[in-house]
Structures are given as structure tokens and as C-alpha cells.
């Protein structure tokens, strides 16, 4: 019998806890498929965040560590400098990476730490129950901005890829999405490029993945995909923000 699909070896055979319509399961699978294809599972160490993906340490079939909220890039740094032969990735949500962990994010990029960050941006806090994220859109409702994000009170959403593109140290930056099958395929390519960047010893790589959180937005999974298409994409344009071996001179934006 021809097998057309199977669980990647880099995923543990357990049921994930994620909600219906959540993007984490898809991105976990993409990362795992990339690890399989690049044959790096046996030397990869992953860092699980605080947030919905806290349980990622139980889903990836490689050595895993779970640490404090936002500190993934620092933990990954400590691991990489101690075991340079290992491939190290940090998996983080928007609150984790762009709010409490912004300093660690920027400085690991500044040092061009040879690690890979998978950044899930769904514009809302998940595990704590729908609070405003640093990437929540202006006007978007959340439990800590029930009337919608008001720039006068809450300021503006942060574009992480654009911010990191300013740094000489960031070597591969791409924003992708998973709200359609075509986007999922593109997202996987980006993740593979990011890991390859690390394997080649080029330095800091990050892939931002626009994702869905129907539960906390109180909408259906399909409507959540529509939200990504209609609301998130205009604020967070997709594309490669950095694909280079060097500093600012080599920035390509497309």
C-alpha cells in the first residue's frame, strides 16, 4: 500500500491539546517535517515558551527545554554556546517574543546568535485568555481592551520582522502565514531556509508565522482564517525581510 502521509519522526505520537482551528498544530508539523528533511532531529534542541505552546516540549521528538516567559532566545543562546554542534530553535508566541521577551529577541538578533526562532503571531494572548498582545491590531477587541485597541491608551502594534531587519545581526527574516494551504507550503519553505541558515553557520534567523486563534477571538476557524487575510495581512505584509550573509547593505525586501 502506498503511504502518502505519515507523522514526522520529529513529532511525538501524542494528541496535541490545541483548540480546533489553532495554528500551532500546523506549525509544529512544519517544523518537524523540516527537521526530518534536514536530518537534524538527533542533534536539535528546542525551547518551548510560556503561552499556549508551553507543551511543545512534549510534542517535539528531540531534546526540549521549557523556560520562563519571553526568555527563549537567552536560553537558546546558552545552549548554542555550550553545544555549538547542536541545532537550537526557540518557539514563541507574540506576547512571549514581542512583549516580555523583546529585549532577549532584539539582542539575540544583535549578537547574530546562530539560532532559529519560530514566531507565532496571532495578535492575541491565548493561554491567559484573550488579552491584548503587542501585535493586536488597532480597534481589535481583547479582554484588556474590551472596546478595541485604542492607540491613545494602548499604543500601536509592533512589526517584529521590520524591526529586526534594522539589525546587522539578523541574517534570515521572513513573515509567512498558514491561513490557506498555499501559505502553509510557503511557510514550510521559509522555516526550512531558516534552519538551513543556522546549519550553514550564518547567524540569527527568524520566521514569523501569522496564525489563528478562533477561541479567543470568539469566531469560527474559517472566520479566523478570513481575519488573517483581511485584517492581519494589511498590517503585517508577508515576505522576506532579510536574506543575506552580511549587514544592512545586503538587505533584500520583497
Amino acid at each position: 500500500m502506498l503511504q502518502v502521509n505519515r507523522r514526522p519522526e520529529s513529532l511525538v505520537d501524542v494528541k496535541m491539546h490545541y483548540c480546533p482551528g489553532c495554528g500551532h498544530g500546523i506549525v509544529h508539523r512544519l517544523v518537524a517535517e523540516v527537521m526530518d528533511e534536514l536530518k537534524i532531529r538527533e542533534r536539535t534542541i528546542g525551547v518551548a515558551p510560556v503561552g499556549c505552546a508551553v507543551f511543545a516540549d512534549h510534542y517535539f521528538n528531540c531534546d526540549m527545554i521549557q523556560g520562563p516567559h519571553g526568555r527563549g532566545p537567552a536560553i537558546a543562546t546558552g545552549i548554542k554556546r555550550s553545544k555549538p554542534q547542536c541545532i537550537v530553535f526557540s518557539y514563541q508566541g507574540d506576547g512571549d517574543l514581542a512583549s516580555i521577551g523583546m529585549a532577549e529577541t532584539i539582542h539575540s538578533a544583535g549578537r547574530s546568535e546562530n539560532i532559529t526562532i519560530i514566531f507565532i503571531n496571532n495578535a492575541i494572548y491565548g493561554m491567559t485568555g484573550g488579552q491584548m498582545a503587542p501585535t493586536t491590531l488597532v480597534g481589535q477587541k481583547a479582554t484588556t481592551c474590551p472596546l478595541g485597541r485604542d492607540p491613545k491608551v494602548n499604543g500601536y502594534p509592533i512589526r517584529v520582522c521590520e524591526l529586526l531587519a534594522q539589525l546587522d545581526g539578523s541574517r534570515y527574516l521572513e513573515r509567512t502565514s498558514i491561513h490557506t494551504a498555499a501559505h502553509v507550503i510557503k511557510a514550510k519553505k521559509a522555516i526550512k531556509k531558516a534552519f538551513q541558515c543556522q546549519i550553514d553557520g550564518k547567524g540569527f534567523s527568524l520566521v514569523e508565522v501569522l496564525s489563528t486563534c478562533p477561541t479567543n477571538m470568539g469566531i469560527s476557524p474559517l472566520d479566523a482564517c478570513k481575519f488573517v487575510q483581511e485584517k492581519l495581512l494589511p498590517q503585517y505584509p508577508l515576505g522576506v525581510f532579510k536574506d543575506s550573509d552580511g549587514g544592512m547593505n545586503n538587505v533584500s525586501r520583497n
Binding site: G67, R71, I79, H107
Partner: peptide, 20 residues
């Protein structure tokens, strides 16, 4: 050796390093 961006980052680098 790393001069970290903060003490918070430094201790978390240690957390990662010690884990190896």
C-alpha cells in the same frame, strides 16, 4: 563568555547552558 543584555537574560542563558 557572553556579556548579556541584562541580568535577566544572563541567568536564562545560564539556564540553557546548565541544561546541556
Amino acid at each position: 563568555f557572553i556579556q548579556a543584555e541584562s541580568e535577566v537574560a544572563a541567568i536564562n542563558m545560564l539556564y540553557g547552558s546548565a541544561a546541556t
